[in-house]
Nucleic acid binder design. Structure first.
Length: 374
RNA sequence: GCGCCUGUCGUCAAGCGGUUAAGACCUCGGAUUGUGGUUCCGAUAUGCAUGGGUUCGAAUCCCAUCAGGCGCC
């Protein structure tokens, strides 16, 4: 094990479902506990799109994400530090996780140049050149001050050849070493990330390498990059069990309800995804029978809530007809209500998975619901 | 009763004699997974109020009828 410093973090694996091997646990952070498995909403620019902090809190979200790359470019991470870090800046007192900017190296590929030292890229808004290395990413993330920070990695595209995948993975491992050296704040936990694209041996190698780093949790990256669902599932199933049993496992960028069911079944504990908020801004909402779209005419006179048993603010207060009306009038409240619903749906969904795990019935839960989502 | 104007998809409309009748909205469907997306993609009129006529050819010209609007008795 390599050295790493993190205090105030602790993970307890509370129970493993006898039917499936799915895990229930508690992750302690400096800003509170997180009961896993958990879905984490994404707030790229230090805001969950269309929602106020109270609205996010009321969905039951236990932790939210922010993005180093975007906050570095806009707001500026020194400014955020001056405002008391991300918690003071956005007035959010629960745990926060920041992504390292590594994913943007992948998703904004046409604007960057990768070298061993780091990544040079242009701000898409003003064209200015910037440079992020593992050391810079750690500095940025320490200024932002999230509880959990992520290693600066290189996410290979899909599809990609073996050589490209291996080079990206090896570089990710070398960068990980540098991240651990550069990271100094013991109130932050640095999660390493498995890469290896879509090759079994690379995934095994990567999981093995990153497990030699002492960390408060471990992530699976490089999925949800356009690959088919069965491919993703194969690699999550392969990778998750290779990570340390006594630490939380975070599957990055994943989250439809069916993805959560699969991930949890394979032993994943944490998920994040932009889908609930993005889908909300596109009019669609999660239900136990798959996603639906509020734009559809069938909801014109529908007095029911989005989901009948749902406890979210939108469902407790408003009809489908009303939300559809707001949508058609282009009132931003429509996106807000749908975002509240979608986030709370996934948060409560992960809680129900947890309940099932604790009673050794997650296999039944999976069977009962999976088919309705796909 | 007379005169004038108008009748193109559910709606608003472009087209004003010449290949498969723009576009928008609506409707329906699809996409979206560590957020460059309140976004993107696709489908939907064998039809131009109705019936005749002119013409090689008509949504486009002519006549009649019907419907709506305006004006005048």
């Amino acid at each position: 094990m390599r050295d790493n410093c993190f205090d105030n973090f602790d993970y307890q694996l509370i129970h493993v479902c006898k039917q499936t091997g799915a895990r229930a646990g508690i992750l302690k952070t400096p800003h509170g506990e997180i009961k896993t498995p958990i879905f984490m909403p994404v707030g790229t620019n230090s805001a969950v799109k269309t929602l106020t902090g109270d609205q996010v809190r009321n969905t039951g979200a236990q932790i939210i994400l922010a993005n180093s790359y975007h906050l570095y470019l806009r707001a500026g991470t020194k400014r955020i530090k001056q405002f008391g870090g991300i918690h003071g800046w956005m007035n959010w007192d629960k745990p926060v996780l920041t992504d390292s900017g590594g994913f943007q190296v992948f998703s904004l590929a046409h604007l960057r140049k990768i070298t061993e030292d780091g990544v040079e890229f242009r701000d898409p808004k003003d064209g200015k050149k910037h440079f992020i290395s593992p050391e810079v990413s750690m500095e940025i993330q320490q200024d932002i001050g999230a509880d959990i920070i992520m290693a600066f990695d290189e996410c290979a595209p899909y599809p990609c050849d073996y050589d490209t995948a291996k080079k990206a993975m090896d570089r990710t491992h070398r960068w990980l070493e540098r991240c651990f050296k550069a990271k100094t704040n013991p109130k932050q936990a640095l999660f390493p990330i498995v890469q290896g694209a879509f090759f079994d041996d690379l995934r095994r190698e990567s999981a093995s390498v990153i497990s030699t780093f002492e960390a408060a949790g471990y992530a699976i990256g490089g999925v949800s990059v356009g690959e088919p669902a069965d491919v993703k599932n194969h690699f999550v199933e392969l990778t998750a069990p290779l990570l340390p049993v006594n630490k939380p496992r975070y599957l990055m960028g994943v989250g439809t309800p069916e993805d959560l069911l699969d991930g949890i079944k394979f032993g994943v504990d944490m998920f994040d995804c932009v889908l609930p908020t993005r889908n909300a801004r596109h009019g669609s909402f999660f239900t136990w029978d798959g996603k639906k779209n509020i734009k559809n005419k069938q909801y014109e006179d529908d007095a029911l809530p989005l989901v009948e048993e749902c406890n979210c603010y939108a469902c407790r207060n408003h009809s489908r007809a009303y939300i559809r009306h707001l949508w058609r009038c282009q009132e931003s409240t429509a996106s807000t209500l749908l975002s509240i619903h979608n986030i709370q749906f996934l948060v409560e969904f992960s809680q129900r998975c947890r309940d099932a795990i604790l009673t050794d019935t997650f296999g039944d839960f999976y069977q009962q619901h999976y088919k309705n989502f796909v």
